[in-house]
Measured scan of single mutants.
Amino acid sequence: DENEERIRAFALYKGIDPEKARELWERGEINKDDEEKAWREYK
């Protein structure tokens, strides 16, 4: 689903483990601007 892809995109963008990215996502600790930037680059 799209959230999974967004988490993966963010992990790649930040160079972090996707599981770590998922934890940040679930806790609401992902910066929305960074997340959008990562998503645009990923697509």
Rank of each mutant, 00 (worst) to 15 (best):
N3T: 15
K14F: 15
I30P: 01
E4V: 07
K32M: 09
K43V: 13
E2W: 14
E35Q: 12
E41C: 12
Y13W: 14
W39V: 03
L12G: 03
K20W: 12
K32E: 11
L24N: 01
E29L: 14
D1Q: 11
K43G: 13
A38Q: 03
E5K: 06
I16W: 05
I30H: 03
R22L: 07
I7E: 00
W39F: 07
W39R: 03
W25Q: 03
Y13T: 01
K20I: 14
F10E: 02
E23Y: 06
A38Y: 06
Y13G: 02
I30C: 04
R8P: 00
R40D: 10
A38E: 02
A9N: 05
K20D: 12
K14N: 10
E29D: 11
Y13R: 01
E29T: 05
D1L: 11
I30K: 02
R40M: 14
G15L: 02
A11I: 02
W25L: 08
P18R: 09
W25P: 00
A38I: 07
E29S: 06
E5L: 09
E41N: 10
K32F: 11
E5Q: 10
G28S: 04
E4Y: 09
Y13M: 08
I30L: 07
R40H: 12
K32Q: 11
E19K: 10
N3Y: 15
A11L: 01
A21H: 00
E36K: 04
Y42L: 05
N3P: 09
A11F: 01
D17E: 10
W39Q: 04
E19L: 09
L24G: 00
Y13L: 07
L24R: 01
E29C: 14
Y42W: 12
K32I: 11
F10A: 02
D33V: 10
P18A: 11
K20H: 13
K20L: 14
N31L: 10
N3F: 15
R40G: 07
P18V: 15
K14I: 13
Y42D: 03
E41L: 12
L24A: 07
E19Y: 07
D34N: 03
A9K: 05
K37M: 12
R22Q: 06
K14H: 12
K14Q: 10
E5S: 06
F10K: 00
D33G: 08
I16S: 00
E5F: 05
E2A: 12
E5R: 06
Y42F: 09
N3R: 15
D33R: 06
K20A: 13
Y13N: 03
E36Y: 06
L24F: 05
D33M: 08
W39C: 08
E5A: 10
K14T: 13
E4T: 08
N3S: 14
N31R: 07
A9I: 09
F10Q: 01
E2V: 13
I7L: 09
W25I: 09
L24Y: 06
F10S: 01
E35W: 15
G28I: 02
R27Q: 10
E19H: 09
G28A: 04
K20F: 12
E4G: 06
Y13D: 03
K43D: 07
R27H: 09
N31V: 06
D34L: 05
I16A: 00
D1M: 12
P18Y: 15
G28P: 00
W25A: 04
F10T: 02
W39H: 03
K37A: 15
E19W: 08
G28Y: 03
Y42Q: 04
K32N: 07
R40T: 12
G28H: 06
W39D: 02
I16E: 00
E5N: 06
P18I: 15
K32P: 14
I7V: 07
D17Q: 08
R8Y: 15
R8H: 12
Y42E: 04
A11N: 00
E29P: 02
D1A: 12
A9H: 03
R22E: 01
Y42A: 04
D33T: 09
I30R: 02
K43C: 15
N31C: 09
E35D: 08
W39P: 01
A21V: 09
E26P: 00
G15N: 10
W25G: 00
F10R: 00
G15R: 05
E36T: 06
L24I: 07
K14R: 08
A11Y: 02
K20R: 13
K20Q: 13
D34V: 04
E4Q: 08
D17S: 15
K14W: 15
L12C: 14
E29Y: 08
G15T: 01
D34F: 04
G28F: 02
R22A: 06
K32V: 10
E4H: 06
A11D: 00
E36G: 03
A21S: 04
E4K: 05
W25D: 01
D34R: 01
N3V: 15
W25T: 00
G28C: 09
K32H: 10
E19M: 11
Y42M: 05
I7C: 03
L24H: 03
I30T: 04
R22Y: 06
A21R: 00
A21P: 00
G28L: 03
D33S: 10
E35P: 01
R8A: 10
A9E: 03
L12H: 10
R27Y: 04
F10N: 02
E5V: 05
E36L: 09
E4M: 08
Y13K: 02
P18S: 09
D17N: 09
G15V: 02
W25N: 01
E41M: 12
R22G: 02
L12T: 09
R40Q: 14
L24W: 04
E35H: 06
E2S: 13
K43N: 12
K37R: 13
I30Y: 11
D1Y: 13
G15D: 07
A11S: 04
A38D: 03
R27S: 12
K37C: 10
D1W: 13
G15F: 01
N31I: 07
E41K: 12
E26Y: 13
E35V: 15
K37I: 12
D1T: 12
I7K: 01
E35Y: 15
K20P: 01
E26H: 10
D17W: 03
G28N: 07
R40W: 13
E35R: 06
E29Q: 10
